[in-house]
Design a protein around this nucleic acid. Structure first.
Lengths: 329, 329
DNA sequence: CATCGTTGTTCCAACGATGTAAAGACCGAG
DNA sequence: CTCGGTCTTTACATCGTTGGAACAACGATG
């Protein structure tokens, strides 16, 4: 692999002059510049990023801490974050935590200025005291914990209200919720939106219709739906806190010969790619993932320059994607 | 951020002694070791990976070049590759090519020893002449192009035969295939397996039943299925070259009120997580993704030590996951 | 012609870690 | 008490790059 020294020798100039050409700095005589550029071309020079970053005091990486890549929402988001990071000359380092407290702790602990310039975090279990970060960070999604870190995400209460209002407007009255969770901040907010929409329509709140889910996988949605269908008085609609839960719920409905949407309306959350292709296709809250990814990376980029900027709280847009899983009674 | 120098000053020893302790090298007197360890603890020292790798002449990264993270197969695989890489103290750098030739070319071109120690490639369009790699690499999946690079993957011909034999054993005779592709190596192999299984059972090969798919997304499967159902003599079964195509095909079947599996049996390929939760759930070829990820990374790790090892061709196991989308006629 | 500012180039040190070689400490044997 | 050998520690150079100081060349100015 060619280094600056090799290029310099070939071009007959000093190493620094080559460096200047590469970085577009200062003044270089046209003929020297030409010779250097020819030499660069000839050797196929590529800067050694490790060395450059060592010298410059940056690493060229941002971390993306998330539960699991096999969850479609995070996979889709990761692709967008990588694309957004590229525009800031950042590479993305992915850390999977599998949603466990210990996984998140060790991921956050490994984050340091020697490894990454900044971090995008999507924690689920972290407590306030765990947020001792030594690099600028952004949290994705809203959280119960109140820490002085910037956030990017949609308004979960409003989004949940939109979803439940949609069900109410279609004439549903016994609306269940799947996805309550003791530690997850977004779960609390979505539940809040659910209750607010019910209250607004003067519908009773029935705690039997709120089913917890420890993980947000398809299997958890299926199990939760089984519990709901076993009720003496089952729901006529269900609001799932993510699309995977909804897919699981629809699967259970199909197994039990409960027709969706005629007997049971289903709304999800996230708008995964797969949700447009289920049968019936899934009505869901669609956050603008691309906006989230871009906002997060842009924020870090601004923050990396000015260390002690104020804490931002960026609200990204969302919409309700109405599909076949919901119809009027 | 603390450096070796800081730790050394605090412990009252030389920088090198601290380095020796950190790396577990040679002989260090117990009391010195204790003092250094106390100092390490006190300062919260973390090695600067950039500097270490600069000195050691490695980068600490491997590249994973793939079409797109929003494709479940690659998302799931990526999670497993990251986990496998961690065991070799490697971080994973993800490059998305979106399946385009230009994307793949630029991804491969950016690979150099200054950036990564090795690369895992999952190309779709690359030509023989593009494989001028300057780092050890492994190809995922089999390919039409014949290049001296190690491969890891399942036996695509055998896997496709297994899938089609399954359909034949259930009594299907007009079996379609979705996913033919001019450049994709695996497509050619799966098609070969499809033809071989037909031939074996003395079933006629009907080119009208082989539908190409330019991308392997759900939408392409849906479009292909529409074409098949528009045939004068539509198929009674369809073998899709990946699960996304199968999901799209099942969606079209549902729209056209074609019952799966009664009117149409469907088999997919990849065993995505979502395929267990479709209605009906999808019978599919299940490659051992975890074995693929581990084999690929292990191979690179061996190769990184001994540069000119012979070219391996690791065949990983697969199985047929029989679910609801296929039943006997 | 000495001086000056501008422009272009080179030299040197440094980023943080590690390999090498050499120096220092220590032991028992002669 | 010296010698030879093992164990332990240190100084120094080095990886590839860039910032800054120093320096050289130049035409313009007084």
């Amino acid at each position: 692999m060619a280094t600056l020294k090799d290029v310099a020798r070939l071009a007959g100039v000093s190493v620094k002059t080559v460096s200047n050409v590469v970085n577009g700095y200062s003044f270089v005589k046209p003929d020297n510049r030409a010779r250097v550029e020819a030499a660069l071309e000839a050797t196929g020079y590529r800067p050694n990023l490790g060395a450059r970053n060592l010298r410059r005091g940056r690493t060229g990486f941002i971390a993306l801490v998330l539960p699991e890549l096999s969850i479609p929402y995070f996979a889709e988001l990761t692709g967008l974050v990588i694309a957004a990071a590229q525009e800031h000359e950042w590479n993305v380092l992915i850390e999977q935590t599998f949603g466990t407290l210990s996984g998140e702790r060790s991921a956050v602990a490994s984050l340091g200025p020697h490894l990454v310039d900044a971090a995008v975090l999507s924690p689920e279990a972290l407590q306030v005291e765990d947020f001792r970060l030594s690099v600028p960070a952004v949290l994705l999604g809203e959280h119960a914990v109140d820490v002085p870190i910037s956030r990017v995400g949609i308004d979960n209460v409003a989004a949940a209200m939109t979803a439940v209002r949609h069900l109410i407007s279609l004439g549903h009255t016994r609306i269940a919720a799947i996805g309550a969770h003791p530690h997850r901040g977004t779960a609390a907010l979505r539940l809040e939106g659910y209750r607010a929409a019910l209250a607004e329509a003067a519908l009773p709140f029935d705690s039997a219709l709120v089913v917890p889910a420890l993980n947000y996988h398809r299997a958890d949605g299926a199990a939760a739906m089984r519990a709901l269908l076993d009720l003496r008085n089952p729901p006529d609609a269900v609001f799932c806190f993510n699309d995977l839960l909804a897919v699981g719920a629809m699967r259970t409905a199909a197994e039990r010969s409960v027709r969706v949407p005629e007997d049971l309306a289903v709304v999800g959350f996230d708008n995964n790619d797969e949700s447009a292709y289920t049968s019936p296709s899934l009505t869901t809250v669609a956050p603008d993932k691309s906006a989230i990814a871009r906002a997060a990376v842009d924020l870090l980029s601004r923050r990396a320059g000015a260390p002690d900027l104020r804490c931002d709280d960026v609200q990204t847009p969302f919409s309700l994607q109405v599909r076949e899983s919901t119809v009027a009674r």
